[in-house]
Design a protein around this nucleic acid. Structure first.
Lengths: 210, 210, 210, 210
DNA sequence: CCTTAATCGAGACGGTACGTCAGGTCTTTTT
DNA sequence: AAAAAGACCTGACGTACCGTCTCGATTAAGG
């Protein structure tokens, strides 16, 4: 029951080279940013990282998996550097609209930043087509972020700023869905004004009933 | 000004083999459904279609372009078979909520239908990563559909069912964005109930102000 | 009954590129001479020949097979350049000893010529270990040469210079076997004097019985 | 003058594991017999022997060297088991022809025995192409055997059965060369009759002159 | 109607990258 | 200190497709 994969006998993680792991992440992120995901190859990552191809294949099943871990590692380091422990929680100043606008504007800025945009799009696209990777992507990157919204909205409900019958999950999708839609499909520009309008309109629907 | 590409003396479209075109579309859609987009190759399409590789390269620049045209053709034929001329417009029974729920439920059904899901995801994913294809995808597939929503919402505004100050474009994204979000990222199941809840919540925000 | 190989559907030889074939032969012979057989790789041959790897794999099953054909081609061209039609036959001056010494000295010279030695040893070694290639090697290179000896010895028997009961095949092996033995195992130097002694001793055994 | 290799500070042979040495020989011979020389790898030998790769690399420079030592060890053990001290000398019954036929028939039998044939061919082939290994092969395996012939022929010369002017070395090559030729190139079957004919023909050439 | 030129099926070609295998070195832990 | 284990960098393997490029053999347009 515990060994579902008859494959390849897992390597000994305790002997793993941290040096190589770092180099692979750096190379992967750099190549994706510089040349795009499609033109990034495992061979290229290995060469740039000064690492044997086998060292990549030993630890990851695919290019996308490497990039996902690289991205996760990047996010973790960024988080660690910036704040402290479990930061990134949406601020609660008591003004829900302001708090959401702040977060959504920040998200818009990220989406307009090529350094974030390139690997992010690549991962999203790959996850859309590869269910297994998609699950990992959603679980490791997306859901944690969505959790922030859920908690902030629940707090707003407790404070009486949001209809207590509203489903926080649905509410959050109203905020995040349109943003992602514009971002992924590039239909219209993503601006702070758009973020603001979005928050205002959604909150109208969430207002406590008279 | 009319021939931006000095390359590749354009082929004579009048001599084009309709037979081959059909076979290529069929093969492309079949292969994507059967084996997935990533494992679908131009060579494979050519072989399955009983066609020379050059015949594909003569008329399309990439695998994604072939699939986009195949999908467009499929949609056109489906449309033709079902309705009449410029169908697919969102019905206007006077009850906006009911009309939107009808359309969104239909969309949910499509997203749950593997025959639509596979090529659709593939195209979306490719468009996310390839801006040129993304533009064609958005223009040819996405925007026309969004137009239906815009027109129905404008009609509702004219009928006084929706706040005349609301931006129809933003409104539509509130409906479509969350749906796409769940679909593409597979966060939670897509059901008719979800479509209904979505419409209800969005319409609360769009209600004319007292 | 005629298609015992379920494999790969033979390529169309009529479309084959003569240019590539030549370049591959030249590259293969050059590399074997320069760096040795073991260090010669198919990738290296392809690179040196300015040819895709697949073009080699399409027409030959192994490095050894390439080299065998290259060597055969070289021999054929050499033959063509030097003599005329079906030359290489052992001369018949009436003096068997002299004729054999002439041929064996030439053989000794070849074995001492690095340009011949390197690919030749490589092929012999490979044929020793790979029965299939060995058969091709024997059939295409070795046996034709042995045939020359058989015919010259038979002529000598007809002329009464050799015991008519002697087996020409056995006789020839007495000449060629020791030469190859010294050559392949590098036990002692190969000289013209050795060739002469060999012929003299063997002919003593072949002399017509009193 | 005593340390030709500046590299790799020679390991301490006194601490060497006899257990591992045995296991490596057994594994090497088994693998060569079972799967052929080309498919036998150092990794495979190590795995089969339950030994670390480094243990092989510490004591041998190449796969061929391992196999040569394994073969030598096998021969030594066989010799030890069968006869006594420095056996294997060609018997001297006074009848040179009979003695040689006895030995050559035994050699033919060995060459037809797969257990001997496989590693033997592999070593011979490797030695043909790799001069260093070839020298070791010749010195350790071939020359000792040829020595037996030299001594037996010299004894025959002393007994007046062979022309005293004949070169024993050349004579021996007349016997062994043809045998090896047929064996290595697989031109014709190796039989006892062939061995007999060979001896008879060679001895005619070696007969004392009238 | 009949030439004639472009398209077609086919597939060989020079390439790039794949994912795998083994070589030989190095490091860690055990004996 | 040698040995078992195995991760590491390297380099070649043989394969799959890429996109380009011939080849006859249709095949539809215009003379």
């Amino acid at each position: 029951m515990s060994e579902p994969r008859p494959a390849k006998a897992a390597p000994d993680a305790s002997r793993r080279s941290e040096r190589s792991r770092r180099a692979i992440f750096d190379a992967a992120l750099a190549l994706v940013s510089e040349t795009g995901y499609a033109k990034t190859t495992i061979e290229g990552i290995a060469a740039r990282a000064g690492v044997g191809k086998q060292t990549i294949y030993r630890w990851w099943p695919s290019k996308a998996a490497v990039l996902l871990d690289a991205f996760l590692d990047l996010a973790a380091r960024a988080n660690e550097a910036l704040g402290g422990d479990a930061q990134s929680e949406i601020p609660d100043t008591g003004d829900l609209a302001a708090d959401l606008k702040y977060v959504l504007r920040a998200t818009v800025d990220e989406m307009n930043d090529p350094a974030f945009d390139a690997p992010s799009r690549a991962l999203a696209a790959e996850g859309i087509v590869d269910p297994e990777l998609g699950a990992r992507f959603t679980e490791a990157l997306l859901e944690p972020q969505l959790g922030y919204y859920v908690r902030r909205i629940q707090a707003a409900q407790a404070a009486g700023d949001v209809d207590p019958d509203a489903d926080p999950r649905l509410a959050l999708e109203l905020l995040v869905g349109p943003l992602h839609h514009r971002w992924l499909h590039r239909t219209l520009p993503l601006t702070h004004a758009y973020a603001d309008d979005l928050v205002d309109l959604v909150l109208r629907g969430l207002a406590p009933r008279a």
